[in-house]
Design a protein around this nucleic acid. Structure first.
Length: 508
RNA sequence: GAGGGGGUAGCUCAGGCGGUAGAGCAACGGAUUUUUAAUCCGUAGGUCGGGGGUUCGAGUCCCCUCCCCCUCACCA
């Protein structure tokens, strides 16, 4: 910096650029004009370059200046629109005022009018006849250097890339593309659902009673209602079922869920959930649907069902492997489920190395039999869950919203799709018997009492029970983590690379 | 929550056996009449994450603390 007097401005204001802004204003040039009339995108110019160059018609293009190379009387600049770029050629002493050529800088947003032509070296370029600064950037943009898709000295610090996503997007076309594709994936999901007759609906984000999942909620209060306690949604499930009860047989919702739990490469306190319910179907039908939707997304986004992820090759070829919990349980415990005790599972966990011997007693006391079993199974199968599969027919005691497995009532008709070892979703043949639902809720509460998991006073959602008592058709429902599906489809190994503004510890 | 790695100029990184901070790129000034990771000459830029301690002297050693990344544990 030639000048370190920041005049009380934040340190990210560049004195050089503030001075440049002042010089432009002094010359009567507004560096922050109100509009610019574009005739072409960079992409459009690229796509039709030869014809446009031959016609010599005036093109008007706007974008961000990413680099400037001056060579005597010639100035070359890169104009970027997202991942697309084109070179500008400005001749000093031509129609572009000297002051604009002098003050334009990398990071500024510019509008140009000019003609398409090829330089002596063959580079597709725009000869600039008019130049407007559409925004003088006041901060330095860490562009680094780039050529042929490679870059040098560019912003790489993931801390900055994630906390200042705008800089990440400005400087890294790959990041921009990742988030464009995320949006495309969500659009494809909506398209698939609509085509099959599903209605997109909304549910409350702020709820008097939370439910539909087991998680610590975010608590808040409602001023207008005497500071009544309220919670951010941990799942849309109980409200979506009210739609089903009321007469919408096929509904879905894509929404943020909020869970006040850990933050790591697979968990963000708020994450995007896609959840749907389809009346008159069971979980078998929904397993097909989940496969179908995931494969459709893979075809459209990756161009096929087989692609690299996390150092391995995923194959989404249908049908995916079905892993039945009761069968795995019997194999691991070497005795029938009804004869196995919590202590047996505790022993198995210890001998599998999933639990320290000293923690066994506490775990057995704290967790339900079903929860212990799932811990054991997920540990035992960890190496087998890379290829897409369905873990299905979970223990009844950890699945309070699910119908019993036909012919095996200790288990339920539930499945969790796993891809690349990640649990990406959860689905049921939904429980529809209101009396049993009431009993299950009570049993779940009793089981949680004193385990440290009864986070808040958590009243039963009586209104939900009332809805169910009014009659809910047989229904299959599926919820999946959109962020995780996006991670897999886009090759991201951290959820923070697919959430635009992930939760951070550091505060400004 | 536990273990490991890291935080030095706007960006990418050196230095680290304690002696008072370096490079490249970016920025700024200049040269160069078609360049493209342009090049060349010059200038400026850092309380080495924060606090405390040891020392004549700490980016470098010790303690505390904040933040980031990875692995593990819990949750989608």
């Amino acid at each position: 910096m030639a000048n370190d007097d920041r005049g009380g401005y934040p340190e990210f204001f560049s004195p050089d650029r503030i001075a440049s802004r002042a010089r432009l204003l002094e010359a009567g040039i507004d560096p922050y004009p109100y509009s610019f009339c574009e005739t072409h995108s960079v992409e459009a110019v690229r796509a039709d370059f030869e014809r446009l160059a031959a016609e010599g018609r005036e093109l008007r293009i706007a974008g961000r200046i990413a680099a400037i190379r001056t060579m005597g009387k010639s100035v070359f600049a890169d104009l970027r629109q997202g991942a697309a770029r084109i070179q500008l050629y400005i001749r000093k002493g031509g129609s572009v005022p000297e002051i604009l050529i002098r003050e334009i800088a990398p990071g500024d947003i510019a509008g140009v009018a000019g003609r398409a032509f090829r330089t002596r070296t063959g580079e597709e370029s725009i000869e600039v006849l008019e130049l407007s600064i559409l925004c003088k950037a006041a901060a330095e943009i860490p562009y680094g250097k780039a050529k042929d898709g490679r870059s040098w000295y560019a912003l790489e610090d993931v801390e900055i890339k994630r906390s200042k996503r705008y800089l990440d997007w400005i400087t890294d076309p790959a990041s921009l593309e990742r988030f464009r594709k995320r949006s495309e994936i969500i659009a494809l999901i909506r398209e698939y659902m609509r085509k099959d007759g599903f209605l997109e609906v909304e549910t409350p984000t702020i709820e008097p009673v939370y439910g539909g999942a087991e998680a610590r909620p975010f608590a808040t209060s409602i001023y207008a209602l005497g500071n009544r306690k309220a919670y951010l949604r941990i799942s849309p499930e109980l409200y979506l079922k009210r739609y089903i009860v009321g007469g919408f047989p096929k509904v879905f919702s894509i929404c943020q869920n909020f869970r006040n739990e850990g933050i790591d490469s697979r968990h963000n306190p708020e994450f995007t959930m896609m959840e749907w319910y389809e009346a008159y179907t069971d979980y078998e039908r929904q397993m097909d649907r989940f496969e179908e939707l995931t494969c459709l997304l893979a075809e459209k986004i990756r161009g096929g069902l087989s692609f690299e992820y996390a150092g391995g090759t995923l194959s989404l070829e249908r049908p995916w492997r079905r892993i039945r919990v009761p069968e795995v349980a019997e194999r691991l415990l070497r005795k029938p489920w009804d004869r196995a005790t919590k202590e047996d599972i505790g022993d198995a966990l210890v001998s599998a190395g999933a639990l320290r011997p000293g923690d066994r007693a506490a775990a057995v006391a704290r967790e339900s039999k079903g929860a212990l079993l799932m811990e054991l199974i997920e540990h035992a199968l960890a190496g087998e869950l890379f290829q897409p599969c369905f873990l299905m027919d979970h223990p009844r005691d950890i699945s309070p919203l699910t119908k019993a497995r036909r012919g095996n009532p200790d288990f339920v008709e539930r499945f969790e799709p796993f891809i690349a070892g990640m649990e990406v979703g959860n689905a049921y043949s939904e429980l529809t018997d209101p009396v049993e639902q009431f009993e299950r809720f009570k049993a779940q509460r009793d089981a949680q009492r004193g385990t440290g998991k009864d986070y808040e006073d958590h009243p039963l959602d009586e209104d939900f029970l009332h809805a169910m008592a009014c009659g809910m058709p047989p229904t299959g429902g599926v919820g999946f983590g959109v962020d995780r599906i996006v991670m897999i489809l886009l090759g991201a190994e951290s959820i923070r690379d697919v959430i635009a503004f992930p939760m951070r510890r550091a505060q400004e």
